[in-house]
Nucleic acid binder design. Structure first.
Length: 129
DNA sequence: AGCCTTTGACCAGCG
DNA sequence: TCGCTGGTCAAAGGC
């Protein structure tokens, strides 16, 4: 109800690089190894998108002040796509990777989409079998 | 005990 | 108009 989902503009599209890191988290069941981006995420849902034939996990930033969201699609533990939505207004939890925040303080909602490498950013129209 | 994760169900939007 | 999908929330369980 009190969802402050207002700033939803797709005016900014930044392409970042997704890296796969091997985490020592090898619990039983099906725990996918997600590449740490230096932020904490809370998984709040997982669904199978038959449209793409892949699983999609939904993550939200742990920070209430942070409206950043993250979604991970994977068809295989070795083939996962990470999509970052929104931007973090707080410093990264981990001091890994040098956050290119030197550009300027982003006080606006950034729309960062990280694609794997087999998904062209330009999509004319639908094209699914 | 606490924290995080997982699954199901519900809702909304669109074709 | 209905159906379907995608997305989110809630609750429960497990470690």
């Amino acid at each position: 109800m009190s969802e402050a989902s207002s700033t939803r503009e797709t005016s900014m599209e930044t392409h970042e690089e997704d890296r796969e890191e091997q985490d020592t988290d090898h619990r039983r069941g099906q725990r996918l190894v997600l590449p740490e981006d230096g932020h904490e995420w809370k998984k709040y849902g997982q669904k199978f998108i038959k449209k793409i034939g892949k699983f999609r996990s939904y993550f939200k930033c742990r920070k209430q002040e942070c409206v950043a969201k993250k979604r991970v699609e994977w068809s295989s533990p070795d083939n996962l796509r990470i999509l970052y939505e929104g931007s973090h207004s707080h410093a990264s939890s981990s001091s890994i990777q040098g956050t290119p925040s030197s550009s300027a303080a982003n006080q606006y909602s950034l729309y960062a989409q990280v694609f794997g490498s087999d998904q062209p950013p330009s999509r004319p129209h639908h094209q699914h079998p």
